[in-house]
């Protein structure tokens, strides 16, 4: 048994905790979320580089939301989302314990939002090299080429909403697409309706996207839709010095007004 499995076993045996949300090996050895309730199942837990899924989405899941004896095994994406969810009052201090990992692989117990916030401050918050290169590729395109690029991508979207379902920040009980009086966004998955959906989602995530890329990873058609929310995340940083997932105070760009905010985009 490795450190994580031993830790999980101890926590469950202690009786102080009843549920561990983490990762296990799934089909073809791929990591997937797992819910461990019995100490004897702790050996299922894994934590390696394949565990890059953001699983903060489970923290407010109806079935376990009010379970205060839960633990979540968090990668850096999940940690940042927890901070952002805390800022938006979607999760509550003391409702769960976080098991994070230090650079050397040691397990770190984080019990309060303050501890989580402090730990998150030590993490890297920018895009990966590959992600930055993709962003640059699109930003360097002419307006026509960029339109053609996204038109092609949106034409493939089947509107399964895997992007929304896997995003921890998409927690609205009723999403704009589900409102039909008035019908803001087309339900059928044609190119225009798909564009409306993805642009709307990106705007709703302005200043809130922690750039985990989970929406893009979840997409069965492999649309690089994470680039849309990355763009608004980068703009939030550039224009409002707001980086989601760094502060447990609700100070994201669209939630507050500062007199010194730029207004040059209003024409």
């Amino acid at each position: 048994m490795n450190n994580l499995q031993q830790k999980a076993q101890q926590l469950l045996e202690s009786g102080n905790y009843g549920l561990i949300v983490g990762y296990e090996k799934g089909t073809s050895g791929k990591a997937r979320p797992v819910f461990i309730r019995k100490a004897e199942h702790a050996s299922k837990l894994i934590f390696d580089e394949s565990c890059d899924q953001n699983i903060a989405v489970y923290l407010y899941r109806q079935e376990i939301k009010h379970d205060k004896k839960k633990v979540i095994v968090a990668n850096h994406h999940t940690l940042k989302s927890i901070v952002e969810l805390a800022a938006e009052n979607q999760v509550f201090d003391g409702d769960f314990m976080v098991l994070a990992f230090a650079g050397n692989g040691d397990i770190i117990e984080l019990n309060t939002f303050e501890e989580i916030e402090k730990h998150v401050a030590t993490l890297y918050h920018g895009l990966t090299e590959a992600e930055a290169a993709m962003m640059k590729k699109i930003e360097d395109m002419s307006l026509e080429d960029r339109w053609a690029f996204w038109e092609n991508e949106f034409s493939k979207c089947i509107k399964c909403y895997a992007c929304r379902a896997s995003c921890p920040m998409c927690y609205c009980p009723t999403c704009t697409v589900e409102i039909n009086q008035p019908q803001w966004i087309s339900v059928p998955s044609h190119t225009l309706g798909n564009l409306e959906w993805h642009v709307m989602r990106a705007m709703h995530l302005a200043g809130r996207c922690v750039t985990c890329g989970q929406c893009g990873k979840a997409c069965p058609l492999e649309l690089p839709i994470q680039l849309l929310t990355y763009k608004v995340a980068l703009d939030s940083k550039q224009f409002f010095d707001s980086v989601a997932g760094t502060s447990i105070c609700a100070d994201n760009a669209l939630a507050i007004f500062k007199p010194e905010d730029h207004e040059n985009f209003i024409r």
Partner: peptide, 17 residues
């Protein structure tokens, strides 16, 4: 069923493909 579906995040990908 609750336990079977714990991991399911409620999208439509499975049905659409």
């Amino acid at each position: 069923w609750t336990e079977q579906a714990m991991r399911c995040i409620g999208c439509g990908a499975c049905a659409y493909v």
